[in-house]
């Protein structure tokens, strides 16, 4: 049995006849220890998908199975790294991580908890900033705190919702390596949602494109057969990399074009102008 399974997931928001179907017929299975990336356009329903998996929302139809059990609400077994860091601005770096650790390990003593916090803050190399508040940190540092907070709870699976989307290219590259390093240590299952194909290829074992919503659904998967540890510069010359990259981008472009032509056909503008349009000016 797969580690995480999504069976025939449908998700709609609102009520009534014109309720928009954000996700439809999503099927996905992730094996233990696997690193899967889902790539899609902005607004294609990626965050909805992630919230379904981490348990913040429930599907309208279908089921999410985690280790064979249906997902009911959030769990410490699935750590989440949010798109917008979501640190609490009134707490310091250490306190932000401590709050998570304390909830995850209620039986541990204070000293043990503080040791865990120190470990993970060290792991994302923020020890000098442990007593700073988020406003004193750069975007990259904030996201590292968010990574430390998610990992310090020792989740069995890490869910990342466009974690590096708001960062500049250099910081992004560094953090990709850091996340891969941390992931490589104990090979937890990981799901990365991203809008960057290169990032997906560099980090994941498998890439699945998300066809944009409404009615977003998963496209065919692409396996990445590049040995780890991967090297960014070498990878650019790897024929496998080029092939996969082109295939994915082509696929995404095709969807994009499809969508454009659809849009052209669908919308016929009525010949109307506002009443008393002239008089108002």
């Amino acid at each position: 049995m797969a580690y995480l399974e999504l069976n025939n997931i449908y998700k709609t928001y609102g009520k009534g006849e014109n309720e928009p179907e954000v996700l439809s017929n999503i099927n996905l299975s992730i094996e233990e220890g696997e690193f899967v990336a889902i790539v899609g356009f902005t607004g294609s329903g990626k965050t909805t998908l992630v919230n379904l998996i981490n348990g913040l929302i429930t599907p309208t139809k279908g089921e999410v199975l985690f280790k064979g059990e249906p997902v009911m609400g959030t769990s410490h077994e699935r750590g989440v790294i949010f798109q917008n860091y979501s640190l609490l601005p009134w707490l310091t770096v250490g306190q932000n991580v401590y709050m998570a650790v304390k909830e995850a390990f209620p039986k541990k003593s204070k000293a043990e908890l503080h040791a865990i916090v120190a470990d993970y803050v060290e792991m994302v190399s923020l020890t000098p900033a442990i007593n700073k508040r988020p406003k004193e940190l750069s975007g990259g540092m904030r996201q590292r705190v968010s990574v430390a907070r998610a990992l310090a709870m020792k989740p069995e699976m890490i869910i990342m919702d466009e974690p590096l989307g708001a960062l500049d290219a250099l910081t992004r590259g560094n953090l990709q390596d850091e996340i891969l390093n941390i992931w490589g240590k104990d090979k937890r299952t990981a799901l990365l949602i991203t809008n960057d194909v290169d990032e997906g290829i560099y980090m994941a074992d498998r890439i699945i494109p998300l066809r944009p919503g409404p009615n977003a659904t998963l496209g065919p998967e692409f396996k990445i057969d590049i040995e780890r540890p991967r090297d960014k510069t070498e990878m650019n010359d790897n024929p496998n990399f080029k092939k996969t990259r082109n295939a994915i981008i082509e696929y995404l472009m095709d969807i994009g074009n499809e969508r454009k032509t659809e849009a052209k056909e669908a919308i016929v503008l009525p010949d109307l102008s506002p009443k008393d349009f002239v008089n108002q000016f």
Binding site: T74, F82, S86, L88, M99
Partner: peptide
């Protein structure tokens, strides 16, 4: 809502 989501994910 982000803070509420954090509270939920951390299971406070």
């Amino acid at each position: 809502k982000d803070y509420i989501n954090v509270a939920k994910v951390l299971k406070l």
